[in-house]
Computed example of a mutant assay.
Amino acid sequence: MPYVNIKITREGGTTPQQKAKLIKGVSELLLEVLNKPLNATFIVIDEVELEDWGVGGLPVEEYRKQAGEKS
């Protein structure tokens, strides 16, 4: 029984339709690639506040500022 956890930042305003598309797509991919039945596949989408997300040792907002300065 596959369990997939998708984490995204809350900043994007992800719609219920987009989440449903993610759930369907990931479930169908597991069926196609690993022959895992849809009714045994669990998908959880966690929306994380931006201040609770980090990358490169920095809060994501700070990381984006520095990455923007470099480009």
Rank of each mutant, 00 (worst) to 15 (best):
V33D: 00
L22Y: 08
E47F: 02
Q17E: 08
Q66P: 09
G25S: 01
R64D: 13
P16Y: 04
N39V: 08
T14A: 11
L50W: 09
P2H: 09
V33M: 04
S27R: 00
M1Y: 15
T41M: 05
W53F: 11
K7R: 12
E51H: 11
W53S: 02
V48N: 08
I43W: 07
A20D: 14
T9F: 10
V55T: 00
Q66G: 09
T9M: 14
E69M: 10
P2C: 09
W53P: 03
K21Q: 05
Y3P: 02
Q18Y: 06
D52E: 13
Y3Q: 13
K36W: 00
T14F: 10
K36Q: 15
E49Q: 10
N5H: 08
E62Y: 12
R64T: 13
L22V: 10
G12M: 05
K65N: 10
Q17V: 03
A20S: 14
G57W: 02
A67C: 15
M1Q: 10
E28V: 08
E11M: 10
K65T: 09
N39F: 15
E11V: 13
M1W: 12
L58F: 11
A67R: 06
E69K: 09
V55S: 04
G25H: 01
P59W: 04
V44S: 11
V55F: 04
K65G: 15
G25A: 05
K36Y: 04
K36V: 15
K21P: 10
G68R: 11
K21C: 13
I8Y: 14
G13Q: 03
G13R: 04
P37S: 12
N5Q: 13
V26Y: 06
G68Y: 10
T15Q: 02
L34F: 07
N35I: 05
Q18N: 14
K70I: 13
E61T: 13
R10G: 03
E32G: 03
A67E: 09
G13F: 05
D46V: 09
Y63N: 01
D52N: 10
A67W: 03
Q66K: 14
L50Q: 06
Y3S: 12
G13P: 00
L34H: 04
L30D: 07
G68K: 11
T9N: 12
G68M: 11
E49G: 00
E28N: 06
P16V: 08
A67I: 07
S71I: 13
K7Y: 12
Q66L: 12
E49N: 11
E32H: 06
F42P: 01
P2V: 05
S27F: 00
V26C: 00
I45S: 01
Y3V: 05
P59A: 01
I43F: 09
P2K: 00
G56F: 05
I23F: 08
M1R: 06
M1L: 14
P16H: 12
G54I: 03
Q66Y: 15
V48I: 07
V26G: 00
R64V: 09
V4Q: 08
L58K: 13
V44K: 05
L58E: 14
K65A: 12
R10Y: 02
V60A: 11
L31G: 01
E32L: 08
L29T: 07
P37D: 04
K19M: 12
P2S: 00
